[in-house]
Simulated assay, not measured.
Amino acid sequence: MKALVVLMFLCSIPLSANAGVYKWVNANGQTHFGDRPPAQATSSEVAVNAAPANADTGARERHQKMTEFLEQQQAERKARRAADAKAKEKAEKRADVCRKLRARLKYLASVSTFYDLNDQGERVFVSEAENTRIREDFREKVRSTCGNE
């Protein structure tokens, strides 16, 4: 009950706060307006029709919807840019890896034979079949990683 009385009181404040507006003309013929009548001149009270506080709720709703739409568009644009940047970075890394793999493949083609090191640190050359298998395995790795670009 007290809350209802307080609410009604608060709603009536803007109506009672609407002070009068006075109009008068000074000795030079200039028209003035004020919230208090002048002491030396005759004035008349002017009726001022204030716009209601909730004049256009539709406009506020449209503004709110437009703001939400623009924020959503901005978020989507930001997400798209981030995804594009990530995809570009991934493509650049892949291109770099493929460049290195192809250079290594070219080097392997120039090597006549491969070898392993034994426990004494001596070279032990592999067979020609093993050389062919090593090259073919690496070619397949390049194909699977980089495709036939």
Results as ranks from 00 to 15, higher is better:
residue 125 F to R: 13
residue 2 K to Y: 08
residue 115 Y to T: 05
residue 27 A to I: 11
residue 16 S to E: 04
residue 24 W to H: 01
residue 39 A to W: 02
residue 21 V to K: 05
residue 60 R to T: 04
residue 60 R to W: 09
residue 135 R to L: 00
residue 85 A to E: 15
residue 85 A to Q: 15
residue 8 M to D: 04
residue 55 A to T: 06
residue 80 R to E: 08
residue 149 E to F: 02
residue 112 S to C: 03
residue 76 E to M: 12
residue 9 F to I: 12
residue 131 N to H: 07
residue 52 P to G: 01
residue 57 T to F: 10
residue 101 L to E: 04
residue 133 R to C: 04
residue 108 L to M: 15
residue 85 A to I: 03
residue 114 F to M: 01
residue 136 E to Y: 07
residue 59 A to S: 14
residue 16 S to M: 15
residue 32 H to Y: 09
residue 80 R to Q: 10
residue 66 M to H: 12
residue 70 L to V: 08
residue 110 S to A: 07
residue 46 V to T: 06
residue 147 G to K: 07
residue 26 N to G: 08
residue 56 D to N: 12
residue 131 N to C: 09
residue 93 K to P: 00
residue 5 V to F: 08
residue 82 A to Y: 04
residue 67 T to R: 10
residue 66 M to S: 15
residue 83 A to P: 00
residue 141 K to T: 03
residue 117 L to T: 08
residue 121 G to P: 01
residue 120 Q to E: 15
residue 48 V to H: 09
residue 30 Q to H: 10
residue 73 Q to H: 12
residue 23 K to A: 11
residue 112 S to P: 01
residue 3 A to I: 10
residue 65 K to P: 02
residue 63 H to T: 11
residue 99 R to H: 11
residue 121 G to K: 10
residue 83 A to G: 03
residue 126 V to C: 05
residue 79 A to F: 03
residue 115 Y to Q: 14
residue 34 G to K: 05
residue 144 S to R: 13
residue 43 S to H: 04
residue 80 R to L: 09
residue 14 P to H: 10
residue 132 T to C: 03
residue 103 A to D: 10
residue 98 C to I: 06
residue 32 H to L: 09
residue 89 E to T: 11
residue 6 V to A: 09
residue 129 A to N: 14
residue 56 D to P: 00
residue 131 N to E: 05
residue 15 L to N: 09
residue 18 N to T: 06
residue 46 V to Y: 08
residue 7 L to H: 07
residue 110 S to V: 01
residue 52 P to V: 00
residue 15 L to K: 09
residue 28 N to S: 13
residue 148 N to G: 07
residue 66 M to L: 15
residue 138 F to L: 02
residue 51 A to N: 10
residue 57 T to L: 14
residue 128 E to G: 04
residue 22 Y to E: 02
residue 128 E to V: 10
residue 106 K to R: 13
residue 4 L to Y: 11
residue 37 P to V: 00
residue 18 N to G: 02
residue 146 C to M: 08
